[in-house]
């Protein structure tokens, strides 16, 4: 079974985030680039499936990003992916969700897959719309927010989380799934994995390779980012260390009464 996992490279979620006023893009300098946390869970799910299904199953990581970030993808290889494919091209810059998902789908068609595992959300863009768009462009069924996957005889049986509980759904390969964080904590790369990752292949694709023509980048996008600004500041909060619990409770009550919340 050929499993492909989409992985986005994002600025460290816990790092300070700045935007360049000229380009309206994230300033990457000085902020570590990491694998989007959600995608590490997707990769973990793929690696577990590979171990369970066995045979000649493979896990390939796919990423669309500037080539300069290539080395940040090694962690995925160190965790156990067999290889990686990276779609990089200056023409992709400024792509919105439509343009990104469209280009990614062309690359993924070329790579080919039985199961495509996608993260639930990106930490930097957070639209969560990429998985659904990919499934449509690729013409495969889409099972999102999955916490358990079983595969037998080409049938995929999943348990997926919903807003208020969970559902059990079965579908056929090829298919796209997105993973919930409850799928299992991502593994740490082992020393052997880290050493081995250096030798694993990262194949590069360009816009010409996927035949995307002009349907890429800012020009093909359906949205345009006008501006961004920090939100209106909240007034600085008070920090109170009360003498005893009753005084603490009284402080809260007085504060809420002043705000007419009680």
């Amino acid at each position: 079974m050929k499993i492909v996992v989409t992985v986005k490279l994002v600025p460290d979620p816990n790092g300070v985030k700045n935007i360049d006023p000229a380009t309206k893009r994230l300033v990457r300098a000085g902020v570590e680039t990491v694998i989007n946390p959600y995608d590490e869970y997707a990769l973990e799910a793929a690696l577990q499936l590979k171990e369970r299904v066995g045979g000649d199953s493979t896990v390939t990581v796919f990423c669309m990003s500037p080539e300069s970030l290539k080395e940040s993808l090694r962690k995925a290889l160190a965790m156990g992916a067999d290889g990686a494919v990276m779609l990089s091209d200056a023409a992709l810059e400024g792509s919105d969700v439509w343009a990104s998902a469209h280009a990614m789908s062309l690359a993924l068609k070329r790579i080919g897959f039985d199961l495509l595992v996608v993260g639930g959300l990106t930490d930097d863009g957070s639209t969560g719309a990429v998985p659904g768009a990919l499934a449509e462009f690729l013409g495969v069924p889409c099972l999102t927010n999955v916490r358990k996957i079983d595969i037998a005889d080409g049938k995929v049986r999943v348990e997926r989380e919903t807003d208020g509980g969970y559902q059990e759904v079965t579908g056929a390969l090829p298919m796209l799934v997105t993973t919930a964080l409850t799928i299992g904590e991502p593994r740490y790369p082992s020393l052997k994995g880290i050493m081995g990752a250096k030798k694993k292949p990262i194949e590069m694709l360009s816009v010409a390779d996927i035949g995307a023509g002009d349907a890429v980048g800012a020009a093909a996008s359906k949205t345009e980012l006008l501006s961004f600004a920090p939100p209106p500041a909240r007034g600085a909060g008070k920090i109170v260390t009360p003498e005893d619990p009753a005084a603490g409770a009284a402080t809260i009550l007085a504060f809420l009464q002043e705000k007419k919340l009680v």
Partner: peptide, 22 residues
């Protein structure tokens, strides 16, 4: 919402539409 995001992604491809999130 969870299912709203899924729907937005699917429709954006079907209708060749732009999406603004949240």
């Amino acid at each position: 919402t969870l299912s709203g995001r899924d729907l937005a992604g699917r429709l954006l491809a079907r209708l060749n539409a732009g999406v603004a999130a949240d």
